[in-house]
Design a protein around this nucleic acid. Structure first.
Lengths: 202, 202
DNA sequence: TCGATACGAACCGGTACCGTATCGAAATCC
DNA sequence: GGATTTCGATACGGTACCGGTTCGTATCGA
């Protein structure tokens, strides 16, 4: 938490220590409310306090305002990139594309779309967003780079464009729900195979 | 407008007619505020009225509430799909991909990201969104279908997946600003060529 | 000119949330 | 036990917007 780190190494302050339960309950309540459909700005401190079973003062004692609390909440969503087997580019990419928009915490899937407008507005939110997806992007970049080095993919490949081709369609499906009826389970394979081989006849 | 159509064929109601200037000013003010960064829900009737130089009553006389006004405003953004030359699949797709996220009204580009959370929540907003991009999607679908018929593209091509591969990367670049520094002008060609030919070496 | 309606502006009571303050109880250290 | 701090709860004044209403004025048809 932004202003709690000092207490860790401080010379043991007197009085009742801050409740770790409250910390978690507050962060959790904020993420729950977001996942249930609240927009970032419609989210109120009072609603978070009620949901967490906590007094408002307990929140204001920890964070200066809603934005700081929210950024801390988003920071807790950081997760590692999924492990890839490394047997083939194709299989690795299927795993990584399948992981787009997925997360250990299922609330992330509902929360990410709500962040889209914020990310374009606030650089702090953009940073939080990129911290969440950063490890996955790095993993995919590495898979592609190695495949180029091995001669499996075109030498003149623009890696960033390739990553966009692979991840963006999955993202629009999972977050924007372009085709709500479509079965998502087969989609990663379809995307990877089509991108690898291209649309043209050979 | 939702409740103004009746006046068109009505037997000429007495009294002062409603101001067309006010209609346009209200819709315009709403779109302006959205384009300037207001979120859909932070947008208030009072702010719209002030911006339009109009009394609140003038708005409430036309629409029952904010949602109806907003949907009407979004409806005015519908535009035709760009013309394609039809010389080659490649050239047509470059035109259509280049048009993703672009619009006759430049405000659309700022407004669309703000709609993302709403589209997942309200079916009315989803309809408005799809009405805006519908003509473009239809045009691209047609270009792809014809190319398959001519034997230029794979016969087993999943057209919807192909459209996602082409449009989603452009959309994430234009609306989510995944790579803010990248030059967007060359991107459509890059995307189309890469998708058509695939990543693999031949 | 007159009746009817729309206009912009201002005001109303109600609601929600802000950020702060205060309460008695609870938890920790000395 | 006493000092100190946090706890949940509640209350406070302030602000913003809601949806509706009422002004005096402006603009139409008859």
């Amino acid at each position: 938490m932004s202003d709690m780190t000092s207490t860790a190494d401080a010379p043991r302050s007197p009085g009742r220590p801050r409740s770790t339960r409250a910390d978690e309950a507050i962060i959790d309540a904020a993420l729950d409310l977001l996942a249930e459909g609240s927009t970032v700005e419609s989210l109120s401190i009072e609603a978070i306090a009620n949901r967490a079973g906590v007094g408002k003062a307990t929140i204001y004692r920890r964070w200066p305002g809603k934005d700081a609390l929210l950024l801390d909440a988003l920071r807790t969503l950081k997760g590692p990139a999924p492990r890839t087997a490394g047997r083939s580019v194709r299989d690795d990419l299927v795993v990584l594309v399948g992981a787009v928009g997925q997360h250990a915490d299922p609330r992330v899937r509902k929360i990410m779309p709500c962040l889209v407008p914020e990310v374009n507005r606030s650089s702090a939110h953009r940073q939080a967003y990129e911290a969440i997806i950063g490890p996955r992007r790095a993993a995919m970049r590495e898979v592609l780079r190695r495949a180029v080095d091995r001669g499996e993919l075109r030498a003149d490949l623009d890696i960033e464009v390739a990553m966009a081709l692979l991840t963006a369609p999955m993202l629009t499906q999972r977050m924007l729900r372009w085709h709500p009826e479509r079965d998502e389970r087969l989609l990663p394979e379809r995307i990877v195979d089509t991108v690898l081989d291209g649309l043209r006849v050979r």
